[in-house]
Amino acid sequence: MTWGWWVTGFGVIFLFLGSLGIYRMPDVYNRLQAGTKCTTLGAFCAILGVGIIEPSWFWTTLIIAVFVLLTNPISSHAFGRASYMSSVSFCEKTKVNQSEDFCRDEDNDT
């Protein structure tokens, strides 16, 4: 099963790019963007590729891959909400910021 190695390699490259994004991006929200998207697909492909190389491991690797795919956005969303709630500032490149409107409407509703 040689093409399993290709799938794994694709995933490994995306895992590295996600880490590079974590290092390079200017503020925590952009870091979350890079960290979530690239590492989710990267881990999914890398783990499933291992399942293709060793067919007897396929179902266990599928469970791990689907678990990563389901839980990664949830924990990233929790971190995003936490940094927004504890008012971490947005970087100076940010063009539009409607988060004040969001808070004000919430106060009016309650």
């Binding site: 870091r31 979350l32 881990a43 890398a46």
Partner: peptide, 25 residues
């Protein structure tokens, strides 16, 4: 800030999960 460190930890955890599977292979 603290959220920056936590996000980096979360990402390294995902990377390590894949790393463990590869070591197993």
């Amino acid at each position: 800030t603290a959220p920056d460190r936590a996000v980096a930890l979360d990402t390294s955890v995902t990377v390590t999960t894949a790393l463990l599977v590869l070591i197993g292979l």
